[in-house]
């Protein structure tokens, strides 16, 4: 897949909660190539510390070349990113990695937990853009608190999706894990797409495995290059080999992943 280096301009930088941010970058070249599930490597500093670029899923794109990132401040790189303001430029490499795939016209379920929601909006937009009707697909989203869930859930709802929600503290939707919303839905869908913390993805992968429903999971690892050059981004594959998240992923058939490690 083609990827490029592009100097994007910040169109807006919104703070959603104390540690969650949404960045709208004008990056028409990358957007023209981007597919749902892919990611970008973002330069968060103009000097040598932090040294490496940070990987972020493409949260959404617009027809006029905007690329959205949804991220949480974790450490040095994301904190620097959160200080950037409208009009500033951000150096991106992308789009990178493979993408979600959908075959046939069956109903599917998208499940996101925390920042794992990020790649699902672009995917939901794609699925609603003519392939099938949004109402028939299911979207399950979970987060710690209403404050961080509501603003991102709204974006799915405005695409026409019926969205079921869960929060850790019960402040919105189901009180508990988003994976607990899946069992009643699972028999009525033919595919599941999951992104979020590893325990969530593992739980969803298990549920799908038990009744033999295909599941695609978006995986995270530490990355130095995102280009397939450093070989640093490995995860354990179920066949005993190592998989490189930036090249073979980030989207994996859940059966290809060894979840128990």
């Amino acid at each position: 897949m083609t990827s490029i280096q592009e100097n994007s301009r910040i169109k807006s930088a919104e703070q959603i909660t104390e540690d969650i941010f949404r960045l709208t970058l004008h990056a028409p070249m990358i957007v023209s190539l981007a597919k749902p599930g892919q990611f970008v490597m973002v330069k968060t500093s103009s000097n040598l510390d932090p040294l490496l670029r940070r990987p972020f899923s493409i949260h959404d794109v617009s027809a006029d070349g905007d690329l959205l990132l949804l991220y949480k401040t974790i450490g040095k790189g994301t904190t620097l990113l959160s200080a950037l303001t409208q009009g500033m430029s951000v150096d991106l490499i992308g789009p990178l990695g493979n993408c979600f795939t959908y075959s046939g016209n069956h109903d599917v379920c998208l499940i996101g937990g925390g920042m794992g929601i990020a790649p699902l909006l672009f995917w939901a937009r794609h699925l609603s853009s003519g392939v099938t009707k949004p109402g028939t697909h299911r979207v399950l989203l979970g987060a710690r608190h209403r404050r961080e869930l509501q603003p991102v859930a709204t974006a799915f709802q405005s695409l026409g999706y019926n969205v079921d929600l869960a929060t850790d503290d019960g402040s919105l939707g189901h009180h508990g894990f988003v994976s607990q919303l899946l069992p009643p839905i699972l028999p009525s869908v033919q595919g599941v797409y999951v992104c979020g913390p590893t325990p969530l993805m593992q739980e969803v992968a298990n549920q799908c495995h038990e009744i033999d429903i295909p599941c695609q999971a978006s995986m995270e690892t530490h990355m130095a290059c995102g280009l397939g050059a450093c070989l640093g981004c490995t995860i354990h594959g179920s066949d005993g080999t190592y998989k490189h998240v930036c090249k073979h992923g980030p989207i994996f058939d859940a059966k290809e992943v060894l979840w128990t490690i």
Partner: peptide, 14 residues
């Protein structure tokens, strides 16, 4: 190669 985790960023290095 080695099992993950394979890389760690350090100040101005890795």
């Amino acid at each position: 190669g080695n099992p993950p985790q394979r890389i760690v960023e350090t100040p101005c290095g890795m």
